[in-house]
Design a protein around this nucleic acid. Structure first.
Lengths: 210, 210
DNA sequence: TTATTATTGTGAAAAAAATTACAACTTACA
DNA sequence: TGTAAGTTGTAATTTTTTTCACAATAATAA
């Protein structure tokens, strides 16, 4: 493949790049400047070949003696994953999970920021929760475009999920990370990532059982 | 493959089975008794063939006219995924995320139950949080075997993750679902599932950017 | 200088997963 | 009765992802 484009990097590779970068930050903080593929592989539970292949796909070259230059690699991964201007995120549903994600995430990434939250409980709206202004959900269609929010994290109750998703589409959202137990179908042009805790636990339980 | 064994079902199939069951419960509640592969496929964003293939792998047969019998299929998936005696789970780290998962999960599955939580903050220990008794983490090695807990959900701060994981191994844990941003390496015989919210968001952001 | 060792980069093979193609069956109804 | 429509089950193929195998290169030490 002489001319593989960045935009069709394998999805798995994108996930791993994010993981690499996280670990590279750690190594940098420990004072390291260079790292070998087998070191990255050990800590990620991957194989050195897979690490090298991923880096090959993004066109990064290391040196046979010193391995990869951590700083350069972090920058390159940033160029690929991050968008120049940064992307703005909303949390929709400020229950336990919504608050957990918000406080967990806050300040973790320069180019991704949670800038708004929404809920339908007036106890929670019109104030700052976990560092983020929480609005009533009936302002969603107005605030999403006004705040230039492109990504929503959906953490509402499952019963509300379709209805709220519809609002998000109408508001012009571009990506949804769905933590609801209801799978969504999204219109063309909207990206979707789903995750369900129960499924993860059941998968793990299945393997443990064997 | 004339004799594919249940224990080496593809990982992806196991995940989808869990998903199917969730949706089958919904359909059952709506009063349906039968379902076609294309109906299951639509709501899961999969193809009908993939649904049929998954069901073929677990040896379930439907009828050409009525599709699949929801109740039977739920039971069969249960036989495959669940363990007869049930499996017991501990939440380790009762911060925002730990509490969110606990309350989200509580009572969702008959054969999987969260029976204990651990934390190192004495404000939280020796009382019931989100319906589950929370113990001090220094009792972990004693309680895990005593309570016959085989699976742990790791939701501690990243700095503590290796140390706590070590405790869990020593306590004889069989599976870990790691929500910490630090990837773990587990001893042989222990199963590991990792999930990182930031990685999911970054992956989504990458696709949105394109 | 010449082995020896350790590393990267990558073509080729293998394995895993998804899709296509279609035979076989069931029902409805002309 | 026969035929059209709609469904399941699965072999075969294609696509995607991972792993293997090894050439090329650099550093080190004999």
């Amino acid at each position: 493949m002489p001319n593989r484009k960045i935009e069709d990097l394998p999805g798995k590779t994108v996930e791993r790049l994010s993981q690499y970068r996280r670990l590279l930050f750690n190594s940098l903080q420990e004072g390291k400047t260079n790292i070998y593929s087998h070191e990255l592989a050990r800590v990620t539970n991957l194989t050195p070949v897979q690490v090298r292949r991923d880096l090959m796909l993004i066109g990064y070259s290391g040196s046979q003696s010193k391995g990869y230059v951590i700083k350069d690699l972090i920058n390159l991964i940033g160029k690929i994953i991050d968008s120049d201007s940064g992307q703005r995120i909303a949390i929709v549903g400020m229950g336990n999970l919504g608050r957990a994600i918000t406080s967990y995430f806050l300040g973790k990434r320069e180019k991704l920021s949670i800038v708004a939250a929404f809920d339908n409980d007036t106890q929670k709206t019109d104030r700052i929760i976990a560092g983020v202004p929480c609005h009533h959900i009936n302002k969603l269609k107005e605030i999403i475009p006004a705040e230039n929010i492109s990504i929503a994290v959906l953490t509402v109750a499952p019963e509300a999920s379709y209805e709220v998703a519809k609002l998000l589409f109408e508001a012009g959202i571009k990506g949804i990370l769905n933590y609801t137990s209801m799978p969504l179908t999204v219109p063309p042009g909207v990206h979707l990532e789903e995750y369900d805790i129960v499924t993860s636990l059941e998968k793990l339980a299945f393997h443990v059982k064997q």
